[in-house]
Amino acid sequence: MFEGLGMNQKKVLIVEDNELNMKLFHDLLDAQGYETFQTGEGLSALTLARQHRPDLILMDIQLPEISGLEVTKWLKEDDELSHIPVVAVTAFAMKGDEERIREGGCEAYISKPISVTHFLDTVRRYLG
């Protein structure tokens, strides 16, 4: 089950301000053998990304101080970080939200509440 241990272990940065959702995503990814880094603030997401160079970033769009879309924009403007795929996870469900999120530079979009199967499929798609 933990075949990814060691140097080959994939790293995922989770940006999510809700503790329960953070726990859900963490448990799901942890069970799949991925290493996770967690933050609830958009600003520290950049620092953590530079520090740990994750293979994937799960980005909540509605964050307390700064929008996840804004953080994504900074990530994509940074030459060293722009290659990291960003998957938006959001509870927004209004028409046009998906387009807005994709235009913001996110590679994929998962709406809350998640379906566990769909969530893991999407994550696997970007982690190979």
């Binding site: 809700n18 329960l20 959702n21 726990k23 859900l24 448990d27 799901l28 509605q62 509870a91 927004f92 469900a93 209004m94 709406s111 809350k112 509440p113 998640i114 379906s115 566990v116 199967t117 969530f119």
Partner: peptide, 18 residues
């Protein structure tokens, strides 16, 4: 309201799904 309900619902559905 939709947003506020979806956030806790994510935990309900997500954990029960697991």
């Amino acid at each position: 309201m939709s947003h506020e309900l979806r956030t806790p619902l994510n935990a309900v559905i997500g954990f029960s799904d697991i």
